[in-house]
Amino acid sequence: MTPDILCIGSVLWDIIGRSSIAMRLGSDVPGRITRLPGGVAMNIAITLARFGLTPALLSAVGKDAEGDELVAACLRMGMITDQLYRSEDLPTDIYMAIEGANGLIAAIADAHSLEAAGDKILRPLADGRLGSAERPWAGMVALDGNLTVALLSEIAHSPLFASADLRVAPASPGKAERLLPLLQHPRATLYVNLEEACLIGKSNYASAAEAAEGLLAHGAARVLVTNGGKACAEGTRNAGVIQAAPPPVMVTRITGAGDTFMAAHIVADRRGDARAAALAAALQAAATYVSGEQPS
Rank of each mutant, 00 (worst) to 15 (best):
T2W: 13
P3N: 06
I5W: 03
C7P: 00
C7M: 03
I8Q: 04
V11I: 15
D14F: 01
D14I: 05
S19K: 06
S27H: 10
S27P: 11
D28F: 09
G31C: 09
I33R: 13
T34K: 09
P37I: 06
G38V: 14
G38C: 10
V40P: 05
A41D: 06
N43K: 08
I44F: 05
I44W: 07
I46N: 08
A49L: 03
P55F: 07
L57Q: 01
L58C: 05
S59G: 11
S59R: 00
G62N: 03
G62V: 03
A73W: 11
L75V: 14
R76L: 13
M79N: 07
I80G: 04
I80Y: 06
D82E: 13
Y85F: 15
E88R: 10
D89V: 14
P91M: 10
T92H: 03
Y95M: 07
M96S: 12
A97K: 04
E99V: 02
G100F: 02
A101F: 10
L104A: 04
I105Q: 13
A106Q: 15
D110I: 06
A111Y: 08
A111G: 14
H112F: 11
H112S: 12
A116F: 01
A116H: 05
A117T: 06
D119K: 08
D119N: 11
K120L: 15
L122A: 06
R123H: 05
L130Q: 02
G131Y: 00
S132T: 14
A133Y: 13
W137H: 06
G139P: 01
M140F: 13
D144C: 05
L147Y: 10
T148S: 11
T148E: 01
T148C: 01
L152D: 02
I155M: 00
I155L: 01
I155Y: 00
D165N: 05
L166T: 01
R167S: 11
P170L: 02
P170I: 01
A171W: 01
A176C: 04
L180A: 12
L182A: 04
P186K: 08
P186E: 10
A188I: 00
T189D: 02
L190G: 05
V192A: 12
N193L: 10
E196F: 02
L199G: 07
I200K: 00
K202I: 07
K202Q: 14
A208P: 03
A211P: 06
A212K: 02
H218W: 13
G219H: 05
G219Q: 04
R222S: 12
L224E: 13
T226K: 09
T226M: 02
T226L: 07
G228Q: 04
G229W: 09
A231E: 08
G235I: 02
T236Q: 09
R237N: 10
G240C: 08
Q243V: 13
A244G: 07
P246V: 03
M250C: 09
I254R: 12
T255C: 14
T255V: 12
T255W: 14
T255R: 06
A257H: 02
A257N: 04
F261N: 01
A263G: 11
I266K: 08
A268P: 07
R270Y: 10
R270M: 09
R270Q: 12
R271A: 11
A277T: 15
L279K: 07
L283C: 03
Q284D: 14
A286M: 14
A286G: 11
T288A: 14
T288K: 12
T288S: 15
T288D: 15
Y289H: 04
E293S: 15
P295I: 12
S296Q: 15
